[in-house]
Amino acid sequence: MASTLMELVFPDAQGLADLGTFVGRARAADQDGAVRLQADGTTLAAYVGVLPGSGLMGDGAVLGLRTMPLAEATTLDTTVALAAVGDRVARTSGVRLPVPAMTVAVPWSAVAPPRAGWERVGTVAVEDLVEAARQGIAEIAQGAPADAGAQAVTALRRQVWGRSTTTVPPVRTGGAFAAYVLGFVPEGTAATVWAHGRWTRLSTPAGHVLMR
C-alpha cells in the first residue's frame, strides 16, 4: 500500500545524499528555484527548472530530471523550494526526509514532460556538451558587464541558450548548460538525444535534461 505520509524514505543514506547533491547543483543555477517531487511507488522523480520558458506553453524552458529509488512505496506530487529541501537534507542523518509542507508555484511545473512515446534521434559526446556550456557561460560573462540592466542580461541569456549546438544531431545550447551545471556529464560517456513533439530530451547515466 502506498504511503500517504509527507515523508520520503530512501534505501540508504547515499540515496538521500544524492538528492541533496542534485538540489545543491540546481540552486547554483537558480538560488530561488524549486523542485517538483513526484512519486507513485518506489521511484522518486525530481524535476528542477534550470532555464525559464515563456508564454502559456513554457516555450524555451529547460528542466533537469533525476530519478532515484525509495525504500517505501509513496504517492506524492508537490513542488517546493530548493532551499527548503536542501535545509532538510542537511539536517537529516538517517534515511527519512520530511517533505516541506509549503508549496511554491513555478510556471514550468504546470507543463509535465511526456513519460512515454519518445523517439531516439542520436547521441552527442558529453565533452561536446561541456564545451558548448562553457563557451556560452563565457559569452554571457563577457557580454553582460556589471552595470548591464536586468533586461539586457535576460535577453543575452535567452539568445545564447536558445541557439543550437554544432553537434550532430544539434541540441539547444541551454540543454548543454543544464547538463553541465547539474553534473549530468560523466567523463567518457555520451548523451542520447530523444524527441517527442515539442520536447527534446538529453539522457546520460547521471540524469535527464528536458527542453520544450
Rank of each mutant, 00 (worst) to 15 (best):
M1A: 14
S3F: 01
T4K: 01
T4C: 03
L5A: 14
E7H: 08
E7P: 05
F10G: 05
P11W: 01
P11Y: 01
D12Y: 06
A13S: 10
A13R: 10
A17E: 14
D18M: 13
G20N: 12
A26W: 02
R27I: 09
A28S: 14
A29K: 03
A29W: 02
D30A: 14
G33H: 10
V35N: 06
V35P: 06
R36Y: 07
L37S: 14
D40E: 15
G41W: 02
G41Q: 05
T42Q: 15
T43R: 14
A45T: 13
A46T: 04
Y47C: 14
V48N: 11
G49V: 06
V50C: 12
P52R: 01
L56S: 12
L56I: 06
M57I: 09
D59Q: 00
A61N: 00
V62Y: 05
L63Y: 05
L63A: 09
R66H: 10
T67E: 14
M68F: 02
L70P: 02
L70C: 03
L70I: 11
T75S: 13
T79G: 03
A84G: 08
A84C: 09
A84Y: 02
V85Y: 07
R88L: 12
V89Q: 02
A90L: 06
A90W: 01
R91D: 13
T92C: 09
R96C: 09
P98S: 06
P98K: 04
P98L: 07
P98C: 05
P98E: 06
M102N: 11
M102C: 03
T103Q: 09
V104W: 01
V104D: 04
V104C: 08
A105R: 13
A110S: 13
A110N: 07
A110D: 15
A112D: 12
R115K: 10
W118Y: 13
W118C: 14
E119N: 05
E119Q: 12
E119K: 03
V126F: 02
L129P: 11
L129K: 06
V130H: 05
A133F: 09
A133T: 10
R134M: 12
R134A: 11
Q135I: 15
G136A: 07
G136R: 04
G136S: 12
I137V: 12
A146D: 14
A146I: 11
A146E: 15
G149H: 04
Q151I: 04
V153C: 06
T154I: 01
A155N: 03
A155M: 03
L156T: 08
R158N: 01
W161D: 06
R163H: 03
V168W: 04
V168M: 10
P170W: 01
V171P: 08
R172Y: 01
G174K: 00
G175A: 12
A176S: 13
F177Y: 15
A179E: 06
A179Y: 02
Y180H: 15
V181A: 13
V181W: 08
L182I: 11
L182D: 11
G183V: 13
G183C: 11
F184I: 04
P186D: 05
G188P: 05
G188W: 00
G188K: 00
T189Y: 01
A190R: 10
T192W: 04
A195G: 09
A195H: 12
T200R: 07
T200S: 12
P205V: 07
P205L: 03
P205E: 06
G207V: 05
L210F: 08
M211D: 09
